[in-house]
Design a protein around this nucleic acid. Structure first.
Lengths: 141, 141
DNA sequence: CCTTGACCTTCCCTTGACTGGAAGGTCCAT
DNA sequence: ATGGACCTTCCAGTCAAGGGAAGGTCAAGG
């Protein structure tokens, strides 16, 4: 298989596949003409990588996950720990984003959104406290 | 004020402040010795930037927000629109992360986490369907 | 006067995970 | 032989900084 075929079948862009080879995640053979020559096993790995990346695992996590996958004597505890740590990071990000969302939602609701210059969003950003309904809870930043 | 003082007072690292000057967000004067020389107005701008960044606005959004802030004849509708667009992106990110979290949570729960190699997390990543409780809903990716 | 240490300057490299594009080689069908 | 689709490598850019080197400046202490 050439790179275009694996790209279509794995759903990953050819550029990404080359990049994954660059950083040592896959090691496709080469044909006589220098073209990368992928086997089913490579395709399988790429699909694995694609799914792990879609779950938000970093490239380094993917490397570890692949190593665990290929290690027949792995302990599932190691996989689980990796996944749980990643889950923790995701939950932290969600919490951060939710805090932003809550503050922004408040500010947007406060803002008249008309042609006058007075704007609680800018007031908040400039550090003046919004007298009204208020988007507080960030004084101590 | 020298950069160290503004760094302490704004909570931004000196590196970040220099970067913000580099990209034209602030334009501090220079003392005779070449040191940046910040006024209260610069500090105010940096605090504004810090808060906008903490709300997840991109640098380019921050640039627009600052311009609006300094434009006395702005329409609050413009600010509101910017904030609403940003809010939409944040909500999309939250939804993405929540989907990851849900799948990962399922998989982690499925995994025994002992010293045996059998692991539903790796099974899922490798494309095999998990026979048990199942973390489905991603077949069509 | 000299040194020490804290502070400041610019410059360039690195991050993560790609993406875009240029310049050029290969393959296959017409 | 020519066109177009495919492949190759290499270099630069993204975003928002962070790290660190090499060197200038300043104030205090000996």
């Amino acid at each position: 298989m050439n790179i275009g075929d694996v790209a279509r079948r794995s759903g990953l862009p050819a550029k990404t596949i080359r990049y994954y080879e660059d950083i040592g995640l896959i090691k496709p053979h080469r044909s006589a003409n220098g073209y990368r020559c992928f086997e089913e096993a490579d395709l399988h790995k790429l699909a694995f990588l694609g799914r792990a990346r879609a779950l938000g695992f970093s490239i380094e996590d993917c490397r570890l996950l692949m190593a665990l996958y290929e290690d027949e004597s792995r302990a599932s505890a190691d996989v689980k720990q990796l996944a749980q740590e990643h889950l923790g990071k995701i939950e932290a990000k969600i919490a951060d984003l939710q805090a932003m969302r809550d503050t922004l939602t408040e500010l947007v609701q406060c803002c008249a959104g008309d042609n006058r210059p007075d704007c609680p969003i800018l007031k908040d950003l400039s550090g003046e406290l919004c007298g009204g309904a208020g988007a507080q809870g960030r004084e101590g930043e």
